[in-house]
Amino acid sequence: MISQTVLVTGLLLMLVGVWGMLTQRNILRIVIGFALMGTGSHIVIVAVGYVAGGTAPIVDGPVTVANAAARAVDPVPSALAVTAIVIGLAVIAVMLAFAIRLYEAKKTLSIDAFADSKW
């Protein structure tokens, strides 16, 4: 149940991001749309790794080497999520850098001003 909720949240966040990136005019807002979509996907990753009643796969306190397999959530999606988040951050950074350059090029952030190449 928990993971389904989280999953739906993540997917909805992705849809919100998609909506934003497709309907907004301002490039910064579009980038925010992308960031939302990325975050949504990371949430989905985490949701996928949840095991009913599980806790963090760190052997400490109540979690021991012996009962870890029974108590822990799936560590793989968490590990992948770390990588995915870093990459997502990197991509957003590049997008923002491009946004700055675009603004400098035309002194506007409206996406409609950048429909240069056609056909």
């Binding site: 491009f98 946004a99 675009l102 090029a105 035309k106 950048f114 240069d116």
Partner: peptide, 10 residues
């Protein structure tokens, strides 16, 4: 060039 930048963004 500006068009190169906008192409890159696309």
């Amino acid at each position: 060039r500006p068009e190169a930048l906008s192409a890159s963004f696309k």
